[in-house]
Design a protein around this nucleic acid. Sequence first.
DNA 1: TTTGGCACTCAGAAAGGTAGAGTGCTAACA
DNA 2: TGTTAGCACTCTACCTTTCTGAGTGCCAAA
Lengths: 350, 350
Amino acid sequence: MPLDERKAKVLQAIVDDYVSTYEPVGSKALIERHNFAVSSATLRNEMAELEKMGLLEKPHTSAGRIPSDKGYREYVNSLMRVDALTDTEKMEIESRINSSMSDVREILRNATATLSETTGFVSLAMTPRLNTSYLTQLKLLMIEPGKALVVMVLSAGVVKDKIVRIPNFLTGEQIREISDSVEKSLSGMPLDEITLITLASSVKESEIPDALLNQVIYEAYTAIKQADKLDVYLEGEHRMLSLPDFSEMDRARDLLGTLSQDGMVAGYVNEIEKAKSDDKNAYMVRIGQEIAIEGLEDCSFITTTYQMGDMISGNIGIIGPKRMDYSKVISQINFVRHKLNDELKRLTGE
Amino acid sequence: MPLDERKAKVLQAIVDDYVSTYEPVGSKALIERHNFAVSSATLRNEMAELEKMGLLEKPHTSAGRIPSDKGYREYVNSLMRVDALTDTEKMEIESRINSSMSDVREILRNATATLSETTGFVSLAMTPRLNTSYLTQLKLLMIEPGKALVVMVLSAGVVKDKIVRIPNFLTGEQIREISDSVEKSLSGMPLDEITLITLASSVKESEIPDALLNQVIYEAYTAIKQADKLDVYLEGEHRMLSLPDFSEMDRARDLLGTLSQDGMVAGYVNEIEKAKSDDKNAYMVRIGQEIAIEGLEDCSFITTTYQMGDMISGNIGIIGPKRMDYSKVISQINFVRHKLNDELKRLTGE
DNA sequence: TTTGGCACTCAGAAAGGTAGAGTGCTAACA
DNA sequence: TGTTAGCACTCTACCTTTCTGAGTGCCAAA
């Protein structure tokens, strides 16, 4: 059901006006602000039809119209134009990106902080999905009797470490021996493919008793599996309190309460990611009720994907009120993504 | 100016009532709830005097009294009794403490989450102050030409790592050589005492050209210095929105805005820490205006110190409304601190 | 199909009116 | 000298009422 041209123009105008004023827009106000070659009565008819189609709704009988979720969806899918940012806007963002950081997590944090500041909304970043990355080095270091440190260097230069318990009487020499043979046979293997079995078979010809060996192997295995745990950074929750959309305490409370639930945001972003097209530059938009999480009915998610080398990627995006300037925010996210990609390339490349 | 017995009792009763009802308490209500052997008129006189002394104030002429900051201070210093928690309360907390974590940061996070949940306020934890800890191991691992990994194991089993740039043509063998001699001469040295000079002198007799060596040394130095950077975990900001104290949007916004300012909380907790007595079990209370940070006029900080081994410590505590049940909250913090100490001992000890 | 006109609706601001909890003060009392 | 009852006064919180204006739907004419 493609909208005829005038309806499209009306919907677009209503979304634009409502986004910038947060006031339900009536037929008269619409005429005043936009160059429609028809009268307010005609617009009233159009608006009534758009309402029947489910694209607009009325807060109450004698108020103007506001876009419904479906209306925003139509707007995002067909009506809006995503422009590049102006040079000033770009510089604004660039000036906040710190290019001297040498740690992936710091870079991500910096990017989220920037994104939240520029959009004025909550921003989020997922840590990179490391399951597709491969091991380049794995060392077991003896810390003290009974305790060893597993240090993993992954492709794209990510480092993970974990302290593990080992049998008390294993010597540093024995640990080094295990470490060397594990590293030799696993380096180059994607984390995904490392199992207890591949791991165990990597140290077949050792003279260390099996029972001891198995314990070390098992601990190393948990360390490796733990390395690709996803984490999420949220930033700027307090900014939502400045939005008229959440000026009622109850909504604000629900929103921040929901956002602070452990794993909530990460889980949802993962869900979105699965449904994503293959285009690496694609962005995903989820609006209002589409999100189906209590407390986020008035919000939209916009996420996109950053790259860290060819194989590793992660998500970055924002959570804002569904009444937002989608085209602008998408441009901003795109640009920050771009800068983030650059930073990560600087870190891992060269 | 010690309060006479009756005044003390009045102040105490007013603080207790106000904390539990969030209503200014008047002379009549006071009589009804507490067993004063005098009439409301007498109490009115007492209250007027307490107001003159600056311990009480009136929101407006015809309202009851509420404690001033000075009133709370008097209450905290002299009037309240800090009781142990009941067994039920203890179990409540214990059930939230996860005893299977193997990482300091996770343990701290778990403790802050627990603390925020039990108090209903914002909780905070500072990462341990590592400047007094000493190096037990330091390894330089070659990742690829031009890049190496510094892995440091500190006393109390904390591990830090950082990727650093090194001259392209240094070999793995050379790196190992530097690594070994640095480790040999620095292990056992407190981070505080490691300087560029001690570091440089630890590899005097090498055959690697000075210029290259110096670059590696410098990078290692930055890695070491970065290891004791303090971080702060905040948890449960959204809970403040449920308090009547912050039911006005403006206050809530100011509060969360201030809390999210980078370094704000960490800086203040550090300041408090400096002023602390030597007693390791001491807690510090800062009330309202005493804090002197815009946006926190209606808040109080309560912090205390956790221990990680003998030498290393950090802070944990809460930020709540100044209208809080100080004695209960202090008990809760103490108990969580206690549990946290246990967890850290489990991790580092044995 | 578009338009002007009109009766109707309804949220939100403004204004007024009470109720009630609380105060300070005074004068009497033990 | 400290305590108490009584009283006039104050002021917020809450309720109700009124009014205004933006907006709608519908109808009949262009």
